[in-house]
Amino acid sequence: MPTRIDARFAALRAEGRAALVTFVMAGDPDLETSLEILKALPGAGADLIEVGMPFTDPMADGPAIQAAGLRALRAGTTLKKTLKLVADFRAFDQTTPIVLMGYYNPIYVFGVEAFLAAALDAGVDGLIVVDLPPEEDAELCLPARAAGLNFIRLATPTTDDKRLPKVLENTSGFVYYVSLTGITGAALADYSGVAAAVKRIKSHTNLPVAVGFGVKNAASAAVIAANADGVVVGSALVSAIKDSLDAEDRAGPGTASSVASLVAAIAEGVRSARRLRPQSVSPLKKLFDAFAKVWS
C-alpha cells in the first residue's frame, strides 16, 4: 500500500519538480515551539518533513544538529514525546509526510514492536536510522516495512556500484544521497558531481533520490533540484532556530517565523529549478552562478 511519501513524490513527479525535504530536531528548543515550527513548515514550502529523534551520542551529526539535540534533551524531549509531537502535528496536517531520523539506541530501548506500533499510531510515514547497516535489516528495517513504514537508506560518495545493490535491497520511499563525506553541516564545495551521482544511483533503482548535506540557501537548493528528485536541508534550519534564541536558549516570538522564512526562500529555489531542467541549460556552474546572484 502506498505511503504518504510515495504519494507525495508521485504528485511532485507529475508536477515536474523536486521535493523540498526539511529537517528539524524534535523538541528544539522546547516541545511547544517545536510543534509551532512543524506546523509552519508545509505552508512555507516543505514537501516532506524529517523529525530528528534526540540522542546523546549523535556520531554522524555536526555541531549545529548536535547542539539542537542537546537543547531538546535539556527540554525533556524523549522518544515518547517525539511521537506525541508527530501526533499533535497530524491533528493539524494529515497529508505532509513525516520521517523520523536518528539512531537505533532509543528505538531499541523503547522496544522495536512497541515503537513501530506507536509510530504508526502517531502518523509517522518513514524511518531513517543512520547506524543500522543493511546487514542488520532484520533488526528494524524488515519489521518496519512489514508494518507499513518506509525505511529510507543513505548512500554516499563512497557507496560504490558493488555496495549499492545491498544498500538499496530493502530501501523504500526514497534514497537519501549524502553528497559529501563527513558530518552534517559541512559545506559542499563542488556541485558538479551531484548529477552524475544521482544518475548512477538511479541506474540501480526506480526510487526517488533526494540529496542532502551542504544545502544552505536557495541557490544551492536550485542547483541540486535541477538533477535530483528531492533537496534535503537540515543544518541551515537548525542554525536559524539557534540564531533566534536568547542567551539561555529560550525561544522568542520570531523563532518559528524565522525558520519558515528561510524555508520559503529555499522552496523558491527548488521550484525555480523546474523551469531550468531542460538540457539546454548548461553547464551546471552557469546555473549555480545565476541563482547565486539572485539570492546572494
Rank of each mutant, 00 (worst) to 15 (best):
74 R>C: 09
105 N>Q: 09
164 L>W: 07
151 F>M: 11
31 L>C: 02
168 L>S: 13
198 V>S: 04
151 F>K: 05
134 P>W: 11
60 A>L: 06
213 F>R: 12
81 K>Y: 07
57 D>V: 05
68 A>G: 15
150 N>I: 01
75 A>Y: 06
60 A>V: 01
181 T>W: 08
210 A>L: 08
136 E>K: 11
137 D>M: 05
95 T>N: 09
48 L>K: 06
231 V>L: 15
28 D>G: 06
204 H>V: 00
216 K>A: 15
25 M>D: 10
240 A>Y: 00
276 L>T: 10
1 M>Y: 07
99 V>H: 04
90 R>C: 05
113 E>K: 10
200 R>N: 08
230 G>W: 14
278 P>N: 01
93 D>K: 04
254 G>L: 13
70 L>M: 15
166 K>W: 14
79 L>A: 11
266 I>C: 02
259 V>Q: 03
64 A>R: 07
152 I>R: 08
234 G>W: 06
110 F>N: 11
251 A>I: 02
170 N>Y: 14
262 L>Q: 00
103 Y>N: 02
209 V>K: 11
139 E>N: 15
116 L>Q: 07
274 R>K: 14
183 I>N: 09
198 V>P: 01
161 D>S: 13
107 I>Q: 04
98 I>T: 09
184 T>W: 01
270 V>T: 12
275 R>C: 04
159 T>A: 10
205 T>H: 09
265 A>L: 10
127 L>V: 02
173 G>F: 03
246 D>Q: 00
230 G>Q: 12
254 G>E: 15
282 S>R: 13
11 A>S: 11
147 A>I: 06
163 R>I: 09
289 D>V: 13
9 F>K: 01
19 A>L: 02
272 S>Q: 04
48 L>W: 08
108 Y>P: 03
70 L>Q: 15
238 V>F: 01
144 A>Q: 06
170 N>D: 14
211 V>Q: 10
39 K>Y: 06
261 S>I: 03
110 F>C: 11
44 A>V: 08
228 A>Y: 11
66 Q>H: 08
283 P>V: 10
100 L>W: 08
117 A>D: 13
83 L>K: 02
135 E>T: 10
105 N>L: 04
37 I>Q: 02
28 D>P: 01
271 R>W: 07
145 R>E: 13
278 P>L: 00
292 A>V: 09
7 A>D: 08
88 D>I: 04
1 M>R: 07
23 F>K: 15
17 R>T: 04
160 D>E: 09
258 S>D: 15
242 K>D: 06
251 A>P: 00
241 I>C: 00
274 R>H: 10
267 A>N: 05
89 F>I: 10
10 A>F: 05
85 L>I: 12
197 A>Q: 11
83 L>W: 10
266 I>L: 07
116 L>G: 03
72 A>E: 12
102 G>H: 08
117 A>I: 04
5 I>Q: 00
228 A>W: 14
238 V>G: 03
282 S>A: 12
82 T>V: 15
233 V>Y: 02
63 P>M: 13
153 R>W: 06
76 G>L: 07
